[in-house]
Structure formats: structure tokens, C-alpha cells
Design a protein around this nucleic acid. Structure first.
Length: 494
RNA sequence: CGGGGUGUAGCGCAGCCCGGUUAGCGCAUCUGCUUUGGGAGCAGAGGGUCGCAGGUUCGAAUCCUGCCACCCCGACCA
């Protein structure tokens, strides 16, 4: 069932796809660049969703749902927004199909041409701000803090499972505020929320930073982001939080009367994370044997594999296993008893490892007799025999250890993959030799940034918000020698 | 859009150069028996418009022409 997984060292891209397919997270669909998210992958997404959704609600946000179709003209309203998204939109032009008598195939019926084309949303700022402009009249109508869970479509040239698909699932938050300061506060609040989520639940350390103008969201005044490092030394943007200023409120005529009785355009933010996070999770922790999942997000945290030779053993073992399962379930542990017939224990072990279940309990006649079970950690392969009494406590403790262990390992890896350089030669050397994050001085111009990207394929991932002391000091640009206030973070990225 | 590659059973492939019985192999699937502490063994079975459309030929998976699709690598993007 599980085919061989290409080792990371041999071909990282293939390894990534092999892990996803063997762990049954996703499959290709008949349409290029779009994927089927299978139950294992969707369960992972649901766990992320559930956690994030709770965090949004705890910070005063409400969920709503805006339509999939956007009038084409809406996209024209905000100049930079058009430029950023126009070239990757799916457009609906007809409302009906009919059989072409000549070819016998279906075609859009010519007389069903829409009066105005509809765009399948690549993001929802426009349709949401059109609505907000109707809802907001007074400072008393503010703030509006809405989130939606939705799918969006961007007609990408090159796609990769989870990391970049033409249709993807995400959440997009859209808020409207009475003051600039409040909107900024919101932008920053969400950035920290995202960072906390990725670090605490996904067990991946992130850098919080500001995007350079060239990497900014189309239509934003400022884009904040979190950047994570993958095992092949490439960076991945894991979430963005945009301060939109008054760009969209102006584009959609959304004014309100403020406390000083003046007309003012609303201040806004938007922010999102997507199913790309599932890809980040895979790339961040998994190994050559398959998926490795942090317990806090794993759909199944613990699996029990019963072992027996005959019916008498079977009955005894299953009874014991059933009791453990019930105890752990009561504690809120997501646990599965794999009592499927027709699969041998060894086969189950391997399968559960491929699927990334953090902890395995094996229990056989020997254990029942001795009052023990065998525990095996997915992340370290560490195996130990522990007492069946107090098992629930042991398990909970182990799950915590795994969660922490994964974060520490990823943090250590990032540390070892972070280089601080002062010259362009050192910079190129660091990129070629080991990749990862390279901290260097930059003169702040688009030209230098573009030149470096052109010559090295490395982009400025962000200007860190909380720089290390060594990065906060001033210096000179490694390429042009012009003054630089501080180091910024470069990397080759997904 | 540029470069590379691949389309033959659910998956992975061989066969094609040099046309010729009923298109083959591994894995997976199904049945039976034996097994079960790290991917089981034996026996049997089912499953194919050879990507599509033309053409050449007595005969095409194989040769010719055209088309389509997908994957990988780059530029663009979450």
C-alpha cells in the first residue's frame, strides 16, 4: 500500500510529494493544479481551523460568508489590487452550456453571455468593501471585525500540492476601524496570533517581520508576515497581516462621520492563512519514513496496536486495549484502536508511521501478563516498555514532550541555518553552501533588492520586527555600500 | 510562457528502435488455507477503448502526421 518514499537527500521535491501521497493527505485531481484533500489531510486542516477560529473569536472577530463571484468591475477599483491579481483570475462569462451540433460536444451557449463577467474571487477585499461601504455610516458602526473561511482561486502557472494550488482553502479576515492607530493595532494583533499558532500548535518557529514594498500585498500600505524555514533550507511565508490604510475604503467610497463630526474614510486590515500551512507542517517536521505531526494538531494522537496469536489472546488483549482507549478518550486524547483484522502488526506499525501518528501503544499477551505496554514515539523512534497503571498520565506527558521536542528540533535547525554576513561574497557562499536565512545589510532600494534576487534567487523575506541585537545595528549595504540601518532577512523561498 | 520528461490494468513499469498468435511483469485487489511482537507464505482468480484523432499496411501499443493531458525544473505568486 505504502510505496517507497524518496529520501530527502535524493530529491526533496519528490520526497514531499511522496510523503503527502503515502500519508493520504491529498491526491491530484483531473484539473491541473488543483488537488483533492483527502480525509487525513482535511482532518489536519480542520484541527488548524478549529484552533484558529477559537483564537479569532477570543479576540472579538465574527465569522461571515461573502460570495464566490465578484463583478469584474470591482477588481478595477483599486489600482494596485488590479495589477496584482488581474493576471491570475478565473473568469465566468456564460451561464449555460449547449450541444454544438457540428462537434457533438458541449459549448457555452452564445446567447447566454453574461452582461458583466464574474471573477472567481482570488481574495475578497473588493466584494467585502462594497458591502462595508453600505454598512458603515458612523463611528458607532465601527469597528467591524469579520473573518470568513472560504476557498479562493488564483490561476497559478506552477503549482505544488498544498503550497500552491489553483484553488485553496483559507481564512481571510477583513476589519474596518475608525482610526489609523486602531487598524495598526489590529494588524499587529493578528500577526502575533498567527505567530503564536504556528509556534505553539505547528511547532515551527517563525520570524515576524515587515515585507519590503516589492513583496507587499497588492493594495496594502504595509504587509506584515511570519516566515518559517523548511528542512531544505528554503523559507516559506506562513501567514500575512496587511495594514490597508484607506485604500479600499476610498476605492469603494466607504466614509463615516467621526467623533469630530467630520467625514472620514475607514481604516482597514486584511489577513489570512491557508491550506499552505498543511504543506509547511509536512516540510517542517517529516522524515524519510513519512509524516511527522505535532500532537496538538494530529488527527489521531495515539494508536493502539493489539498483538495476538489466537482467539484467547485476542480476547484478552482487546479487552485490555479497549479499557486503555476508553480511559484516554475520557482525558480528551484523540486515540484510535487499530483492531482491523487481516493486517499484521508490522504492517500497521509502518502505516501509522507513514501517516505520522505521534505515539503508538503496542500491547500483546506478554504485556497483558506483565501489566505493561510498549510505547513508541514517531518523532524519535524511541521505544520503551511502561507500566499500564498510570498510563494516561504517561501518555499525556509523552505527547507534551513530543510537541516540545519537535519545536526545539525545528528551532535548533533554524538556528544552525541562520547566517549573518557583511559581504556579498559571504552572502552568496552562505546561500549556496547551506541555504537557510541569511541576515545582511540592505540599502532599502527596490533596485538592490531586485539585483540580488536576479543574481542569487534570494528574496528579502522580511525586515524583522524584533531583531537580534547584532541585526539592529547600522552598517552598509553588502552590494552597493550605501548606508543601512539594520540587517534584513534573505532566503530562497517557496 | 521557456526547458525537460511521461502517457500501456488502481499504482509503478517493460514491450516500441526492428509491425505479426490471446499485450506482459511487479505491487495492489478478490477467494481459500496457514500466519500475526516491525511491511507474511502458498495456491488460485479478476481487471486493458495501449492518451486522442487521422494516416501507412493484409496486419499498428510498435511506423508517420496532428492534437491533448499531466509531472518536474525556471520566471510569477499565499
Amino acid at each position: 500500500m505504502a510505496d517507497a518514499i524518496t529520501p530527502r537527500s535524493e530529491d526533496y521535491a519528490r520526497w514531499y510529494v511522496d510523503v503527502i501521497r503515502n500519508a493520504k493527505l491529498a491526491d491530484y485531481s483531473p484539473v491541473r493544479g488543483s488537488m483533492i484533500i483527502r480525509p487525513n489531510g482535511y482532518a489536519l486542516w480542520e484541527n488548524m481551523q478549529r484552533t484558529l477560529d477559537g483564537m479569532f473569536k477570543d479576540t472579538g472577530h465574527e465569522n461571515a460568508y461573502f460570495p464566490l463571484f465578484i463583478p469584474q468591475s470591482f477588481l478595477e477599483r483599486e489600482a494596485e489590487h488590479v495589477e496584482g491579481f488581474a493576471k491570475e483570475c478565473a473568469v465566468v462569462t456564460h451561464s449555460r452550456l449547449e450541444v454544438d451540433e457540428e462537434t457533438g460536444h458541449l459549448r457555452p451557449a452564445p446567447d447566454s453571455r453574461l452582461e458583466e463577467n464574474l471573477v472567481v474571487r482570488p481574495t475578497s477585499e473588493t466584494i467585502i468593501w462594497d458591502a462595508y461601504s453600505k454598512w458603515i455610516q458612523s463611528w458607532r458602526d465601527l469597528p467591524i471585525k469579520i473573518n470568513q473561511w472560504a476557498n479562493v482561486v488564483r490561476w497559478e502557472m506552477r503549482t505544488r500540492l498544498f503550497l500552491r494550488t489553483m484553488e485553496f482553502l483559507w481564512q481571510e479576515g477583513h476589519t474596518a476601524h475608525a482610526t489609523e492607530a486602531e487598524a495598526w493595532e489590529e494588524t499587529r494583533l493578528i500577526l502575533d496570533l498567527y505567530a503564536d499558532f504556528v509556534e505553539e500548535y505547528m511547532a515551527l518557529p517563525v520570524i515576524r517581520g515587515i515585507k519590503t514594498p516589492s513583496e507587499r500585498f497588492a493594495g496594502a500600505v504595509e504587509t506584515l508576515c511570519i516566515e518559517a524555514l523548511m528542512q531544505d533550507g528554503k523559507a516559506l511565508q506562513a501567514g500575512t497581516s496587511h495594514f490597508l490604510g484607506q485604500n479600499f475604503s476610498k476605492a469603494f467610497g466607504c466614509q463615516f462621520q467621526n467623533r469630530d463630526n467630520e467625514l472620514e474614510y475607514a481604516w482597514s486590515t486584511s489577513w489570512g492563512v491557508s491550506t499552505r500551512l498543511v504543506g509547511a507542517l509536512v516540510m517542517g517536521h517529516s522524515d524519510d519514513r513519512g509524516l511527522v505531526l505535532p500532537p496538538k494538531l494530529a488527527p489521531t494522537q495515539v494508536v493502539i496496536v493489539p498483538i495476538y496469536r489466537n482467539d484467547a489472546d485476542r480476547e484478552q488483549v482487546l479487552e485490555s486495549a479497549g479499557r486503555m482507549q476508553a480511559d484516554l478518550r475520557k482525558r480528551g486524547v484523540r486515540i484510535k484502536l487499530d483492531d482491523r483484522e487481516g493486517f499484521r502488526p508490522g504492517w500497521k506499525f509502518t502505516q501509522h508511521e507513514v501517516e505520522g501518528i505521534p505515539l503508538r501503544i503496542a500491547i500483546g499477551p506478554r504485556d497483558v501478563a506483565a501489566g505493561t505496554v510498549e510505547l513508541t514515539r514517531r518523532d524519535t523512534s524511541e521505544k520503551e516498555t511502561v507500566s499500564a497503571t498510570g498510563l494516561s498520565d504517561t501518555i499525556e506527558q509523552k505527547l507534551d514532550e513530543i510537541q516540545k521536542g519537535l519545536f526545539d528540533k525545528a528551532a535548533q535547525f533554524r538556528e544552525s541555518m541562520t547566517t549573518r554576513v557583511d559581504s556579498y561574497d559571504e552572502f552568496k557562499e552562505a546561500l549556496t553552501d547551506k541555504g537557510g536565512f541569511v541576515h545582511a545589510h540592505w540599502d532599502g532600494t527596490d533596485e538592490t533588492e531586485a539585483r540580488i534576487k536576479d543574481e542569487t534567487k534570494a528574496t528579502i523575506r522580511c525586515i524583522p520586527i524584533d531583531p537580534a541585537e547584532e541585526d539592529a545595528e547600522s552598517g552598509v549595504d553588502m552590494v552597493t555600500g550605501a548606508p543601512s540601518a539594520r540587517r534584513v532577512v534573505f532566503a530562497r523561498a517557496y
